[in-house]
Simulated assay, not measured.
Amino acid sequence: MVSVKSILLAAMATVVYGAPCQPTFVPTLPKTGGARELPSPPPSFTLKKIAVGHGIQNYTCVDTTSAPKADGAVAILYDVTKYAPGTPKTGIAKALWDRIPSALLLKPLTLNKLAGTKYGAHATAPFPKEEDLKLLGFPIAEYLGHHYFDISSTPMFDLNRVGLKASVTKLDNVDAPANADKGPLKTGAVAWLQLGDSGKGLSSGITQVYRVITAGGVGQKCDVAGVGVHSVPYTTFYWFF
């Protein structure tokens, strides 16, 4: 004879172990809508973080007739992972999400300034104290880390708040959409990038990085910027896998 207790235990086991597992939500990497898109990360890769970055792209003009040569970047990274559209409970509307880079570009740079420049960052101490991002009309984004180029000109991402790091090299790029925010200097939005591990053994927990939904950052014409180094503000989303 089957006891009532046995029936209840069997029913509980069905509820706990027999119910289908709910899939983990994974945000979809943005697309430019152009003829060619950045390759998607391998299915085995796991999204670790999504950050919004705010900083500067640096350029060098050899003379007033040459094209500006990219010369590294410096940016502060803020964690916006939980606000990605579709994320249960904390996700925000896609229209609001897509506006974050442009809205942030209106905010004054918080990098430690290089004396005598409008946008240049201090060469040896560019980063101020760690603070969360408070952007009017948007949820607070927690400080996540820094982006910079090391002494060998290798792009670095140090997500020191969560113990992740990436030393990367460019794998692919596509132009930003024609309607992308051109930034305060109206020079244009920098390209979207797929970045992979540099192979230098400096990465920790990150294999690929994507730069998407860019705003600003394109260098000025050298006949305007003159000879030497100039900096241009930019913002973007970085996706870390």
Rank of each mutant, 00 (worst) to 15 (best):
D150P: 12
S152W: 13
S152I: 06
S152Y: 05
S152P: 05
S152D: 15
P155I: 02
P155D: 07
P155F: 04
P155E: 13
P155V: 00
F157H: 07
D158E: 08
L159V: 11
N160I: 14
N160D: 14
R161A: 15
R161V: 14
R161I: 00
V162C: 12
V162D: 14
G163R: 14
G163A: 06
A166K: 13
A166R: 06
A166H: 13
A166S: 05
S167P: 15
V168I: 15
V168L: 06
V168C: 06
T169W: 01
T169A: 00
T169Q: 10
K170I: 03
L171W: 10
D172F: 15
P177I: 02
A178K: 03
A178N: 03
N179R: 05
N179W: 09
N179T: 12
A180Q: 09
K182H: 09
K182L: 00
G183F: 07
P184Y: 10
L185E: 14
L185A: 09
K186I: 00
K186W: 00
G188T: 09
G188S: 01
G188R: 04
V190D: 12
A191T: 13
A191M: 01
A191C: 13
W192Q: 01
L193H: 15
Q194I: 00
Q194T: 07
L195E: 06
L195Q: 11
G196F: 12
D197E: 08
D197M: 07
S198T: 04
S198C: 09
G199M: 00
G199S: 15
G199F: 11
G199W: 10
G201D: 08
G201W: 11
G201V: 10
G201R: 04
G201P: 08
G201Q: 11
L202I: 01
S204V: 11
S204T: 03
G205C: 00
T207L: 03
Q208W: 12
V209Y: 10
V209W: 02
Y210Q: 02
V212N: 07
V212G: 01
V212K: 08
I213P: 14
A215L: 06
